[in-house]
Design a protein around this nucleic acid. Structure first.
Lengths: 136, 136
DNA sequence: AAACCCTTGCAACTTAGTTGCAAATTGATA
DNA sequence: TATCAATTTGCAACTAAGTTGCAAGGGTTT
């Protein structure tokens, strides 16, 4: 059996090239959504060019392998979609002190009841506050 | 009684200057969060310089008169905070077709139950889907 | 009226994302 | 396996939106 990263690329119908495998691996390793730059950092020396990261992400989003988790301070955060419900993923918690983001995979939230005529494709919850580490 | 805009600036302890009053008026008139640029557009010829809009918003955010509703496509959207709960405002709905945003002031949502050790300062819900106008 | 502080606008800068284009790589085919 | 077409990559240049520095302007207080 091929490794997970290849598998994901495969099901998305994308060629398995070195840069793409690296990018997907980085996202698999992550415990919270990443920005394009964070992906690059994570990969260090061997990171593909930022254009490649950008375009790979766009492809993966298009194929629903990845989705944009949220946007903050003018940068977009991406995460793999494989553990998410079609409409709603888990809530994201960002600490206002250390500004680290946590995926609240345990917490569940009901979908908002929309007014007549609206239909929902996606619901996202973002929470700001103080994380346990920064408590005191 | 002074007009609402002046009143808001006053309670925030900010001088009532022409640019500021214009900005707050624009936000009072709005039915959905606005970007800095949208505020400028709204005010047309008489709009203050974008730096002024920026700094006025920062002041207002600091004083909790305005808050950032969400960030999308690298631009920030602001709205007056005067009808919002301290922690949670109404959910925001953005149509994927016309990309207009609606404030779902009617819809209410419970606060997410956080894991032990986390404390919440703010919760925001953003929804994507099709609005009634774009339905067909 | 003088001194002070706040506010404004301009211009320059930053950041993160995005696009155009030519070179390199891949996979399919002969 | 050599060749070819199509896809993918990297570089460099560009864009959009926000942000900062600085000097000029205006109001408030003494």
């Amino acid at each position: 059996m091929k490794e997970k990263a290849c598998e994901l690329l495969n099901t998305a119908g994308l060629r398995q090239t070195a840069p793409r495998i690296a990018i997907v691996r980085a996202m698999l390793k992550a415990t919270a959504p990443l920005t394009q730059e964070q992906i690059a950092e994570q990969l260090g020396q061997t990171a593909p060019n930022k254009t490649t990261i950008y375009r790979t992400l766009m492809h993966l989003v298009e194929k629903n392998v990845v989705h944009e988790a949220f946007t903050q301070e003018r940068s977009q955060y991406f995460e793999l979609a494989h553990h998410c419900g079609k409409i709603q993923c888990h809530p994201h918690f960002t600490c206002v002190r250390c500004s680290r983001t946590h995926c609240l995979t345990g917490a569940s939230a009901p979908l908002v009841e929309l007014p007549e005529g609206f239909s929902m494709q996606r619901q996202q919850i973002s929470i700001e506050g103080i994380c346990p580490k920064c408590k005191n």
